[in-house]
């Protein structure tokens, strides 16, 4: 039973809907719509070069039986995991410096500088790396001048890793710095007071306390690297065939929509599983 009249209720609902409804509607139409279509399409068939709504498992059985798909899948997964771990290691000293060695006011400036490239011309930065590392580029030239081989550094894992780092460093730096910055200083003092050496404080206080943020850093680096296809193509030079490359090839190659949909869904499944496991681990509590 309500004490309010129907008119008052209706007016309230309308006001609420004005704010709450637009985003869900837009996302239902233009995000959930495409994603659901993708799922549906993985069961469609191609007849006479025409995509036909259907309930067929042919795309699934075809794709899942491809040996090179599975090798690509695991290569993709492994490479991004390695990149995520390496980028996290690379970022850690920098994040530590930002969290503990500079003043909070400066920290914000540094974080801003670290994050800004995330929103700026990724493609051009990859191009810059390409000419940096390519034959006659800046780095090979430098190496040559000190007596090393001046060969192109492209089409190597180093090049691919630099591409991944270009993409993911900003996000990892921000997540790590926030995580380290939130470590309770009193706990650290207490540990020192109980006789802990600096390396013990790092291992037993700082790292466990910052674990959620640090793990999220690894996770985001993984997600971004895994989805990336520009570095893999133009820096890895196709030496590293990855799932997104496979995906773009399938689409450009003609009417392979259902197969592309299956590959997409496999990618999504791998992502979700990895995210779930990482988040569960990151927020796991010791004891009950």
């Amino acid at each position: 039973m309500s004490v309010l009249s129907a008119k008052v209720r209706l007016r309230r609902r309308a006001w609420f809907a004005l704010w709450a409804a637009p985003l869900p509607i837009w996302f239902a139409l233009f995000f959930m719509g495409p994603m659901l279509l993708l799922i549906a399409m993985s069961f469609w068939s191609v007849q006479n070069y025409r995509l036909t709504p259907d309930f067929s498992l042919s795309a699934w059985s075809y794709v899942l039986s491809l040996d090179f798909l599975w090798s690509t899948f695991w290569r993709s997964y492994g490479l991004s995991l390695i990149s995520a771990a390496l980028v996290s290691l690379l970022a850690f000293p920098a994040s530590y410096a930002m969290a503990f060695l500079i003043t909070p006011a400066r920290r914000l400036t540094f974080l801003g500088l670290a994050l800004a490239p995330f929103f700026t011309s990724y493609l051009v930065r990859i191009y810059s790396l390409q000419v940096f590392l390519g034959e006659g580029g800046v780095l090979p030239q430098l190496f040559h001048s000190v007596g090393l081989s001046g060969a192109s550094l492209l089409n190597s894992y180093t090049a691919l890793f630099l591409g991944h780092a270009t993409l993911t460093l900003p996000v990892v730096l921000v997540l790590q710095t926030l995580a380290l910055g939130n470590v309770d200083r009193t706990e650290m003092s207490a540990a020192v007071n109980l006789g802990a050496r600096p390396q013990h404080v790092l291992r037993h206080i700082i790292l466990p306390a910052a674990r959620p943020g640090l793990s999220l850093g690894v996770l985001f680096a993984f997600l971004l690297s895994y989805a990336e296809f520009v570095s893999a193509t133009y820096l890895g030079g196709g030496v590293f065939q990855t799932l997104p490359i496979l995906l773009t090839d399938l689409i450009r190659g003609g009417q392979q929509w259902p197969r592309a949909a299956v590959v997409s869904l496999l990618m999504m499944a791998a992502l979700m599983l990895t995210s779930l496991v990482t988040v569960a681990w990151a927020y796991r509590q010791k004891g009950n």
């Binding site: 039973m1 004490v3 009249s5």
Partner: peptide, 16 residues
């Protein structure tokens, strides 16, 4: 909003 009951100001019900 009250779940049940009345609020009156100078005798006027003002729930709404």
């Amino acid at each position: 909003e009250p779940t049940r009951g009345d609020i009156r100001l100078e005798g006027q019900q003002i729930n709404d």
